[in-house]
Design a protein around this nucleic acid. Structure first.
Lengths: 246, 246
DNA sequence: ATATTATTGTCTCAATTTGGGATAATGATA
DNA sequence: TATCATTATCCCAAATTGAGACAATAATAT
C-alpha cells in the first residue's frame, strides 16, 4: 500500500519552475563517524533503482550555501554544521533527473509540471561533518528511505554520485590537518584511539599509535579529562575533548 | 568617436536568453608572471566604471569547464592552459550585471533583449596559470580594454571580484607544493632566482636562497641546463627546465 | 593475594628535514 | 691583479618524524 502524497509532489514540482534557479542544484556528502567507521548518508528517491546523495535546489533569493544548509537540516535535523563547498560538477551530459520521469508519469503527474527538472543540472558539491549521535534521519517527500552507509560499502549510486563522494573524500583528506575535522565528527568526549581510527579511515592507511599521540598532543588542541573504564582487562584510556576556538 | 558594433552586441544579447544556462557564469583569475611580479588579467567591460575579471556564460550542451577554457582562449589565444576550479560564488545578492543596464539602454538596446542578464548570477571561479610571454591579449566585443595588473596594484573591481581574486590566490597557495605550478607560469628556461621569486610572490613572504635551492633540487623535478651570461659582474646562474611528466 | 593479559601512555634513539650562517666559486669591471 | 655582486654549496644545530621498547594499569584467572 502506497503512502505517497501525490498532491505534495505536485506542489513541489509546480513551484519548482519559478521558485528555483534553473538547472542548478546542490548535493551534500554528509560524513559521520560511528563504531570506528566513516559513514556517508544516502537516500533512495522515489521511483529510482539506485541510492543517491541528498541534494536540493537553490531558491531565487537564497544563497547557494543556504540551500546546502537547508538540505542538511531537512535530512539530519542539525543546523550548526560544518559545511565545505568542494567542487562543481558541470558536465554537459549530467541529465541527472531524467530517470525520474518514468516514475512521475507512472503516478499520474503531467509532463508539463516537471519539464524544468528534465534538463542538464549543474550541481555544487558540499561535504558536511556531523556528530553521528545527534543526527535524526528524516526523509523528505520525494524519498523512500534514508540510511547511513559505510564508506567501504557504498553501492553503485545514481548518476555521477560515486564520483562526487570520491572528490569529497579527497577534499576531506586535503583539509585533515588544517581544519579541526575531528571536532565535528566525534562526540564531545573521545579516546585517543577513536581519534586515531578517524584519521586512519579518512586517510585510508594505518598510523603509529605512539607518534600519532605525540603529534596530536603537541598541537595543543586537546584537553585531557577523566578516564574511561570500559571493563576491559587493561589500562583505561583517557578521554579528551577539543579546546574551544578556531 | 565610438567604434562599437551595436549589431554585434544585440546579437550577443538576443542569443543569450536561449543559448546559455540561465543565471550561471564562469569567472577566471588568470595569473601570469613577468619581471618578478605576479600579474592578473583584468578587463574593462563597456559601460562600466570599474575593471572586472574575464568571464563568460555556459552554453546549453557545454561543460562548465569548457566555458572557462573558452573564456581563456578568447582573451589570451591560449588553449593548452592549466585551469583549476576553486570556488563557487553564489550569494543571493550578486546581481552582477545590473550596472550594465544603463549602458545598454544608452546605446539603444531594448530592455527585453537583456532581461536574462539582469538576474542574480551564480559564478564558478577558476584560476588559470599562463606563460606570460605567450599571451596575446584580445578584448571581446563587450569590452573596451584588457590589461595585466600587478597583484599588489589591483584596483577596486566590480562586484565581488576582489574577493574572488583573494580566494583564487589562497587556492594557488594551497596548491603550491602539490602541483607543478612553476612549470605553468615560467618560460621554458628560468633561473633558480626567478623560481624563488615566483614562490615568494605567491606566498607573500621571503624565502632563504640556500634552503629553497636545496628543496627544489631534492624534489627531482628540475633539469639543470646551460648557464645564463647576462653580462653582470658576478657568477652566472644556471638555467633550469621542468622535467616532463605529472 | 598474586600472576596473567590486553591496552595505554611514555620514553628513547636514530633518521630525516629544516633553519640559518659561512664559505668558496665565478663572471665582469676597475 | 684586486674588487664586487651574485651564485652554488657546505656545515651544523634545531626540530620533526619513524620505529622499537618498556612501564603502568584495569580487569580476570589462579
Amino acid at each position: 500500500m502506497e503512502t505517497i502524497n501525490i498532491e505534495l509532489i505536485r506542489d513541489f514540482l509546480r513551484e519548482g519552475g519559478d521558485k528555483y534557479v534553473p538547472q542548478l542544484s546542490v548535493d551534500c556528502v554528509i560524513f559521520g563517524f560511528h563504531e570506528q567507521q566513516l559513514k556517508v548518508l544516502l537516500l533512495k528517491p522515489r521511483g529510482m533503482e539506485s541510492w543517491a546523495l541528498p541534494g536540493g535546489f537553490v531558491e531565487q533569493g537564497q544563497d547557494v550555501d543556504a540551500a546546502a544548509i537547508q538540505t542538511l537540516k531537512d535530512r539530519t535535523g542539525l543546523s550548526d554544521i560544518f559545511l565545505d563547498q568542494f567542487h562543481v560538477f558541470g558536465r554537459a551530459d549530467r541529465n541527472t533527473h531524467d530517470s525520474m520521469r518514468l516514475y512521475l508519469e507512472s503516478i499520474g503527474i503531467e509532463v508539463a509540471a516537471f519539464r524544468w527538472l528534465m534538463q542538464r543540472f549543474v550541481t555544487v558539491g558540499y561535504y558536511a561533518l556531523v556528530n553521528f549521535e545527534k543526527v535524526r534521519l528524516q526523509a523528505s517527500v520525494m524519498e523512500e528511505k534514508i540510511e547511513w552507509f559505510d564508506l567501504a560499502q557504498i553501492p553503485q549510486l545514481a548518476f555521477d554520485h560515486n564520483e562526487i563522494i570520491l572528490k569529497a573524500l579527497n577534499a576531506l583528506r586535503d583539509h585533515l590537518d588544517s581544519k579541526v575535522i575531528g571536532a565535528r565528527l566525534l562526540p564531545e568526549l573521545f579516546t585517543m584511539n577513536e581519534l586515531q581510527g578517524l584519521y586512519e579511515t579518512i586517510l585510508g592507511s594505518p598510523l603509529r599509535r605512539n607518534n600519532f599521540q605525540r603529534k596530536m598532543l603537541s598541537l595543543g588542541m586537546l584537553e585531557r579529562t577523566e578516564k574511561l573504564y570500559t571493563g576491559g582487562a587493561h589500562k583505561a584510556p583517557y578521554l579528551y575533548r577539543f579546546l574551544e576556538g578556531e
